[in-house]
Every structure is written in C-alpha cells, then in structure tokens.
Design a protein around this nucleic acid. Structure first.
Length: 659
RNA sequence: GCCGGGGUAGCUCAGUCGGCAGAGCAGCUCACUCGUAAUGAGCAGGUCAGGGGUUCGAAUCCCCUCUCCGGCUCCA
C-alpha cells in the first residue's frame, strides 16, 4: 500500500506501508526530525509514533508553535504527576490539562496531607531526574472495564471514565476517550517498565527527555469538577516552554505585569487606598486618584450629553418592595448587603440602578415619540461580594457604574444596538484602547423569561450589530442571563491582556415586572424593550485597568499632575511661579517643587518616579529668555531653552487631542 | 464561602532557640542654592493586625476574629 502525504507547502510524498509522523519528519529532514514532538494529521494533533493509515495532510508539530507548546505542557503535567507519585505514595490524581502559558494537575494526598510550598521544589527536582531518565510516552487503548480495573484505586479517574461512558461528561473530559475506548498513556523507562500511567487523550511528546524548560509556580485549592459541593483538591500550577529562553521571557513578562499591578501603583502614586478600618472591598480616593477619576467622569458625562442621553440621579437605598418588584431579592439576595429595618419598612443598599430608572420611566405616561429614552447615571451600588473574591479595584463591594438604561420599541432595537456599539467603542478609543473583541451570549434554554420570538429577534439584532461594526466575536451559547441576550466587549491592553469592559444587554424582564408601557402611534399601549448598557462597567475597575494599561503613566489629558516646575535655585522661584501661572491660565494641572526642598537631581528623580508627563527646569537662562527646560516623560534628553509660550501651546494642544 | 500562604514604622522588608523593637526609603529640622534620576547631618516614627491562652517572660508557641495575597467557586 502506498500512502500519499501532503505537506503544508502543498508538496506530496509517497510512503510504503503506514508511516508515522516521525517517518514523515525524517523524510523531510534531520533537523525537523530532531525538533518534532507531534504530528498534525488532517487537522488533528496526534503522537509522532501514531501510524498514518490513509492519505492525509500532515504537518510536523515542533515545540515553538501553539500546538507544540500545548503538547509540551500536557506532557509536563504527566511528568509532574509522576514526580508527585514518587514523592507522595498513595496520592490520588484528578485532571491535569495544558492551559494558557502552562499546565496544572489536581491531587489529593492520602490522610488529608497537603503539599507545602517547599514541596514544589522537591517535585521539580524529581521532575528533572525523570527528564534525564528519558522515558517513552506510550499510548494504548482499552475497554471501559479494563480502564475501570486499571484505575481501581483512583476514584477521580474512575469517575471520569464513568461520566464519559454515561454521556454525562464535561467537555474537557470527553477527549480522554474516543469511540468508546479508554485512552491510556504509560511512561516507560529504559528497562521497559511502566513508571507512570494516566487516563489521557494525548497526544504527548515521544519521551520525557523532550521536556525541560518548566517551572512549578504555585499551589492552590480547586474543587473537584469545579463544584463547591465536592471535595477540594490541591492544584499545582506550572509553566512550560520550548526553551529556557522562552521560559525566562515568560517569567520576565510576569514580573513586568506585577510592576503594573494597580494595587501597587495606586500606593506608589498616591492614587487611592483600601484602609483596613473601612472594611474589605471599599476604597478611599486620594486627591491624585480622584482627579483622574473626575476627568474620566467629566469626559463620560460630556460624551453622554452629546450622545442623546438624559441624566438622572437616584438614591443609594431603596425600600425592599422595590427589589421584590425587580426580582433582585429573589435572585440575588445573597449578593446584596443586609437590610436595615426602619419604622416604615425594610431598606436595602441598591445593588443595581435599573429598578430606579424603571421608576423614572413609569413616573408618567410615555409616548412612542419619546423613545428611545436613554437614561444615564453614574450610580453607586453596593454588592456583598464573597470575601475570597475581592481583588483590588477589579472586584470591589462599593462601586460606581456608568449605567444607562435605554427604553425603546422593538422596531428601534436594531438601530439602537448598532449605535450603542459605535458609541461604546468610540469612548473606549479615547482611553487608548483600539483592539476590541466581543462575546454574544445566547439563551439558556433551561432558564429564561420572554417569548422565543423576542429572544430570536433580539439575538439577531445583537448579531447584526456586531457584524455591521465588523467586531470579531464569539458566541457563548446559553450564557445569557435569564432576562435577555447580551453582548460583552473586551479590550486588549498594552501588554496583550484582555479585559471585559462594556456590556449591552437586552432585558425582557424589567419592563414586565414594572409594567412599563408606552402609547404607540396606534393609540394603544405597548411594552417597551429595555437595554442595559454599561460602558466602563465600574468606574473603579476601569480606573484599575487604565492604571495597568498605562503602567501608571497616564497620558497628559488624564494625568493628575501634567507639569511640575522645578526652579534650579531659590532665586528662580519668582519666575517659576510665573511659569506656573501661565500653565494654570491655560487650564493645566501644575505643581511647583521648590529649590529649598531638595537638590535639583533629587527633585527631578521624584518627579520622574511620579510619572509626570512634563518636568520643567527653570534657571538663569530661562529667566533671562522667558524659556523653560523641558524634560518630557519617556525622553532621554531634556529640551533646553523652549519658549514658554510654545510649551504652553504644545501641552494645551496635546491635552485637547487626548494624545 | 472553600484551600493554601501572609500581616513588624507611611512604604519595602530583617528580626536566630521564647529573653531590651531593627534597616533602607518616605516624613520633620538644620545646613547646602545646585541646569536634568538620590547633598549631608540630626530628629521623630511601633497596641509587632485585634482578642484570648501557654509561659517567670511572647513579634516569636496555641486558639479565635479581622484583613491582605494566590487560586477555586461566584459575579445581576
């Protein structure tokens, strides 16, 4: 039999018998054969040693590709599990997949024992020994019964086999089996003895010797099958790469990301703090942080004002009746702050603004001529987030939403969603985000309100809007809230991380619950559709993301202090104040660092560490010529002798352009 | 909420076996008046997260609470 293999460049090669990926690689070249760790056969990544039994398109997978790294990471997870079994006899293992940048494996140690941080080093040492042992990864397949016997003392593996065979498998289990057979991988040493065995779909590298650029990162708890009712296992996270250099680069990226951490920068730049006395998940904004926030809010208000929104203001508390009407008390009571019992009823801090906006809508009869009615509020809400979920500004208990609720007719839905999308992206662009993607969440068939027709129409409207905007999106089937489908928008930050920000949600529930109506052109009453639209989402969280995006170096228009003026010596103070006055008159935010405070070098250093966009140094020459020495952030060499007027104009223009 | 690890000066951290509470930076004072990333000297700064316990004696050992960090779960 002759097998024809088509290579990625379109060329073909003939093989007698059933070649393996390794054979194909060897036929192409010795270098590729050495680098190969797996083969992609008709789009499916398989072991290098798997026979190819029919004509196929084959690509050799090497470690420096996404597919290659995934194989590498998955294999490293096996290696780690083997090391754990060697060091902790009797350990139970659960799942150990490759993930972004690495892998993990979940374990349960006998007698309630726990890994400690020191164990990570021991496990890693053992892994390096196993790499040297050059064990082969060997695939085999067996029946359900055989599989259950092989894993007789491994309850988690047995459960995976059972679930897959009964069809109750989670999606990430399904691959452990194919076509009713159980996939097993053995690690086999030089003597042919099995040293480790795992339930697995593969593929894997040919030998442990192909692994090496890995590092165990951290320990964490993780519920078995992600279910908080089930046992908590211990998860060991690791990272693995194709080379030492790639690993080092990854560790360097992590260190850089840590330097951008908004919690660290918030302290360093004196933006805000989380005083313990205040309680968890609550922040106080210091003058500099509050200034940035004010600029964000001012800009948001300005855009909304010009975008056809009407501003509303609602209180922080409401009678429990309101949240009974809205349904929040029955659906989200656990996430709400506890009630205050007062003489005239029970009051709750509001977890959302929508019920109050519905009251505004309902305060009088509405005409179709008023729609779409766009209500906007920077509304502060309180949610009792579970203690373990709090995270700086990203997950916080008191926060302000840039919250809008739009009431429109069904006919207006399409246009309204389209213009909302455009509005949202336009505002986000002003904050330096240019790379967007989106998710469309559709109906959960098990839990929803409203007719199928309206769901379909609304979902189509959202989809059409995404396509018109040419926004790349993925569909999350069944991920919508019970009250309507939604779009979530993500942005990519300066170091490539994605953040979910804005949301546009259809709501078929609130209009019903609040019995909202409008009088149509036909002189009869109709139910409006309600859209929830958050743009920043939470001001606090968006601020945190901005801090990380800009690494604390806000662009001029957002910087809390735009210019700092440093007289060289006391005798230049008067001129420095003149410069200060000129900048302030141009509407700029300026501060003076007097010469009596410190040496010039020290003052420059402070200003630099404060990430101020412009440092002006003024001395004898400047007094004489009415110039300034400009030390711009990010520039190595200062620019001496710039005429004051010219500098003022330059910064004013830059701020106006939001550059 | 669950699992693990932390909490010592404003910040970053040291503190050995249970035996007098430490450093750098920041702050304040004085001197220095300087042209682009740290001038020098001095001073001040602490309920060792809080509470309880063991002990002659606790930052140190034990228990509880709060809180932070890393995950898990959750996120209208």
């Amino acid at each position: 039999m002759t097998i024809t293999i088509t290579l990625p460049d379109g060329s073909t090669r003939e093989f007698e018998g059933t070649p393996t990926g390794a054979d194909v690689a060897a036929a192409i070249g010795a270098g590729l054969a050495r680098a190969a760790i797996a083969a992609e056969v008709d789009g499916e990544v398989v072991d290098l040693g798997r026979p190819i039994t029919a004509d196929a398109a084959v690509a050799i997978v090497t470690p420096n590709s996404d597919a290659g790294r995934e194989v590498l990471r998955h294999s490293t997870a096996h290696l780690m599990a083997q090391a754990v079994f060697d060091l902790f006899p009797g350990a139970k293992y659960a799942i150990g997949p490759a993930i972004a940048d690495g892998f993990y494996y979940d374990f349960e140690l006998p007698d309630g024992a726990r890994f400690t941080d020191e164990d990570l080093g021991r496990i890693e040492d053992r892994m390096r020994e196993l790499v040297k042992a050059d064990q082969a990864f060997v695939r085999e397949e067996c029946s359900f019964d055989e599989g259950m016997a092989v894993f007789a003392d491994q309850p988690y593996k047995r459960e995976i086999i059972e679930n897959v065979s009964s069809g109750a498998a989670a999606s990430d289990d399904a691959g452990e089996l194919a076509g009713g057979v159980v996939g097993i991988y053995r690690n086999v040493d030089a003597d042919g003895a099995t040293t480790y065995l795992d339930l697995c779909r593969g593929p894997h590298v040919p030998s442990t010797a192909r692994l090496g650029a890995f590092k165990l990162m951290k320990l964490a708890g993780a519920y078995w099958r992600g279910d908080e009712q089930r046992p908590m296992l211990q998860r060991v996270y690791g990272t693995a790469w194709e080379s030492r250099a790639a690993l080092d680069e990854h560790l360097h990226r992590l260190a850089e990301a840590e330097k951008r951490d908004h919690r660290r920068l918030a302290t360093e730049l004196d933006l805000l703090s989380f005083p313990e006395e205040l309680g968890g998940g609550l922040a106080v904004w210091h003058p500099r942080g509050a200034m940035v926030r004010k600029i964000m809010e001012d800009y948001s208000r300005e855009r909304h004002e010009h975008g056809g929104y009407e501003f509303v203001v609602t209180p922080h508390l409401a009678n429990a009746n309101l949240f009974e009407t809205s349904g929040h008390l029955s659906f989200y009571k656990d996430g709400m702050y506890p009630p205050m019992e007062l003489d005239n009823g029970t009051y709750y801090p509001k977890p959302m603004n929508c019920p109050m906006h519905c009251l505004i809508y309902r305060s009088r009869q509405r005409s179709y001529r008023e729609l779409p009615l766009r209500l906007f509020e920077l509304g502060t809400v309180y949610r009792y987030e579970r203690a373990g979920t709090l995270h700086g500004l990203m997950r916080i208990r008191g926060f302000t939403q840039d919250d809008s609720h739009i009431y429109c007719t069904e006919d207006q839905l399409q246009d309204e969603i389209g213009s909302l999308l455009g509005f949202v992206m336009s505002v986000l662009r002003a904050f330096g985000f240019t790379d967007f993607s989106a998710y469309l969440s559709t109906k959960d068939p098990g839990k929803y309100v409203g007719s199928d027709e309206i769901w379909d129409r609304a979902t189509d409207a959202l989809r059409t809007a995404l396509e018109t905007a040419q926004l790349p999106y993925a569909v999350k089937e069944g991920d919508a809230a019970f009250y309507g489908p939604k779009i979530d928008i993500e942005v990519r930050d300066a170091i490539g991380r994605m953040w979910q920000l804005s949301t546009i949600q259809c709501d078929f529930n609130h209009p019903d619950r609040f019995d909202l109506e409008y009088v149509g052109a036909d002189n009869s009453r109709h139910r409006p559709i309600m859209l929830h639209r958050a743009l920043f989402g939470s001001i606090e969280r968006f601020f945190g993301i901005l801090v990380e995006h800009y690494a604390g170096a806000f662009p001029s228009w957002l910087a809390p202090v735009q210019v700092e003026v440093l007289p060289v010596a006391d005798r230049h103070d008067a001129y420095a104040r003149e410069v200060l006055g000129a900048l302030e008159a141009a509407g700029l935010r300026v501060e003076l660092r007097e010469a009596s405070a410190d040496s010039l070098g020290a003052r420059i250093r402070r200003s630099k560490l404060g990430k101020v966009p412009y440092i002006l140094v003024v001395g004898d020459d400047d007094v004489e010529q009415r110039t300034v020495g400009v030390n711009a952030r990010g520039q190595d060499d200062p620019d001496r002798g710039v005429p004051l007027d010219r500098f003022v104009a330059r910064v004013r223009d830059e701020v106006a352009a939001k550059a």
